[in-house]
Design a binder for these strands. Sequence first.
DNA 1: CGCCTAGTTGAGGTAAGTCAATTCACGTGG
DNA 2: CCACGTGAATTGACTTACCTCAACTAGGCG
Lengths: 241, 241
Amino acid sequence: MKNTPLVRKLGTFVALSDVELSVIETLHKRRRTFVAGRDLVHQGQSDQAAYILASGWACSYKILPDGERQIIDFQIPGDFLGLRSVLLHMSDHSIEPITDIEVSEVMVGDLLDAFGKTPRLAMAVLWAASRDEAMVVEHLVDIGRRTAIERMAHFLLELGSRLALVGMGNKSGYQCPLTQYLMADALGLSAVHVNRVLRQLREEGMVSFRDGLVVFENYNKLVDFAGFDEAYLDHGGPLLA
Amino acid sequence: MKNTPLVRKLGTFVALSDVELSVIETLHKRRRTFVAGRDLVHQGQSDQAAYILASGWACSYKILPDGERQIIDFQIPGDFLGLRSVLLHMSDHSIEPITDIEVSEVMVGDLLDAFGKTPRLAMAVLWAASRDEAMVVEHLVDIGRRTAIERMAHFLLELGSRLALVGMGNKSGYQCPLTQYLMADALGLSAVHVNRVLRQLREEGMVSFRDGLVVFENYNKLVDFAGFDEAYLDHGGPLLA
DNA sequence: CGCCTAGTTGAGGTAAGTCAATTCACGTGG
DNA sequence: CCACGTGAATTGACTTACCTCAACTAGGCG
């Protein structure tokens, strides 16, 4: 059980004991699967469960009254889905599986019990939640103050870092099931412009994204160009020994 | 002590007992003041305290490598400052007082003690933190998918709702010390364009913003125009009786 | 009085959007 | 096996929302 994405991720925040590992395992009780495209959680829906994503990709988004969509974040294996919704007893956003996904349903009660047993696990989860918030903040900066091409560069790097943390990518590249339409909705751009920007990044020899595969042609140049600082993502080692 | 901004705000989430009120009071131990313009917290700084804002306005922001600034959020009385920084042991943003401010310094230890004594207070604080995150998400949607004028309209409404929650405004308007430059940095616009957009909103008879005073000329029209749904801000009553 | 900051307005430029057409990969049914 | 439809990517031509630069006004304060 030491190789689930969640364990890998939490392990970078807190060194986990065997006891804690087994507590985590009890959380993964009820396994469910969802097919791509059908919403798990609807905006405005109340009282649903939280999930831990085991495999596949999802996204959380909001729909505006005029029908426009803004994707808030993509979720990859090891991420929580709908944690905030449970706290607020009301979801302010929707969640849609991008690929077919497998999740573990987490009962709020079980989570609180787990926290009672191992406070270090509670800290780890809090850190994970704080990191999620930090990512939303970075996303905000991205959209507010970067040009389209910088935005895309930053986005691809951030995704790479997150995937690397759960063993699904590295500095040479990663597999990515996102369409240009999805990226457009995430970055506040039109799909057409996403396409142009990707071409530009490819022609300048920084990254290519073709057939579901992101390849970093020149990682350092890209990092420099995007002004990417991964301090907010990876702490370079456990904060709590 | 029942009329501090923090108590008013938490009170809308959870009905607070006398015991809980007195615990909150113990948090407000070390009172400090800061002058406008001098940063409380610097991006990259580690290990600082958290604060509760008692009076005045502040903002949290990030500076990009190229010198551009994105304001993440404005803080008004009753809001926490730097709660996430404490959790992550590292601040990913800076905080600057916009006016002279008074704050209560909160020791992390005291906060954890308080949570141990009254779990309901812990829930209230968690809810407050979740609401902050929901506001950042809404801000993201704002910048990503709304036009400049809708963005401004939405921003002024959200601020009004938040101020109303701590008794500093209502549906007819509120006092607001923000300059057009600050709003530009928050909304991802240029200061010049902020000015034009404010003029337009004034000419259409929806809101006016002059001499530090926001006046809603036609609240319903504005809500409709901005697509403002305050569900994510105010739950219309205590979630926990 | 002159300086500084905040706000205001105009003219012209540009990043990104919209509309539209084309290609390609893929299923699916005849 | 081919005809057809559908979703994704690609590219071109044109439009527009917002930016930049610049000039000017009005209040506050040493």
